[in-house]
């Protein structure tokens, strides 16, 4: 990796650790290998969102041409959000694409992703199914996002919505648990629809 990229990542690493947000454990980065090409990010789900209380892990890949090109970031932790793929974790965020500027840092990228969690853009979706649910059935979207947060991001369990029973019903029929959760979430927890989709 070019020298400027390594130098910068080292500095940004310190910046995140020393930042106000880092001190409050809202954002964090750690090394995956010694070459500074791959990092692991962590952001806290912002308050007053269905992601509150969750810890989200991100895969950050630093390109050779950093900082002239943006880092490649995706969610490792599963998340239910219109601008993040519920399958791959790919993020639809302009600053990670054409709006990248060389003065942005790991800190600003992590804060931008955290801000994306509190203000979704359903009209520019990454996950069309989630975006449709967000627009047409916001209440179910909130419940689903909160359920995914407690399921995958370690947030405390919320009052039961009967979601567990529906998942158990599908897994008892032989479905994989993850597949059951995704299918139920996509069909807005309509068990007939989910069953039909899974077993027909």
């Amino acid at each position: 990796m070019s020298n400027i990229a390594v130098q910068r990542i080292k500095r940004e690493f310190k910046e995140v650790a020393k930042s106000e947000e880092g001190a409050k454990c809202e954002i964090r980065v750690e090394l995956v290998n010694d070459s500074f090409t791959e990092l692991r990010g962590e952001i806290a789900g912002p308050p007053d969102t269905p992601y509150e209380g969750g810890k989200y892990h991100l895969e950050i890949k630093v390109p050779e041409t950093y900082p002239f090109n943006p880092p490649k970031v995706r969610f490792i932790t599963k998340i239910w959000h219109p601008n993040i793929s519920s399958v791959t974790g790919a993020i639809c965020l302009d600053i990670l694409k054409d709006q990248w500027a060389a003065a942005m840092t790991l800190r600003t990228v992590l804060l931008s992703i955290q801000a994306l969690l509190s203000s979704a853009e359903p009209d520019d979706p990454q996950d069309a199914v989630v975006a449709r649910q967000y627009k047409e059935n916001y209440d179910v979207f909130l419940k689903t996002a909160r359920f995914w947060c407690s399921c995958y991001a370690g947030a405390p369990k919320q009052a039961s919505n009967g979601f567990e029973e529906k998942i158990k019903w599908l897994t008892d029929m032989g479905a994989n648990e993850q597949v059951a959760i995704r299918t139920l979430s996509s069909s807005s927890w309509n068990i007939e629809k989910a069953t039909e989709e899974l077993f027909s």
Partner: peptide, 14 residues
């Protein structure tokens, strides 16, 4: 998505 206030770099650099 650009109107996301947190996402803009200016405030940080300031």
């Amino acid at each position: 998505m650009a109107d996301n206030p947190e996402a803009m770099p200016e405030c940080d650099s300031e």
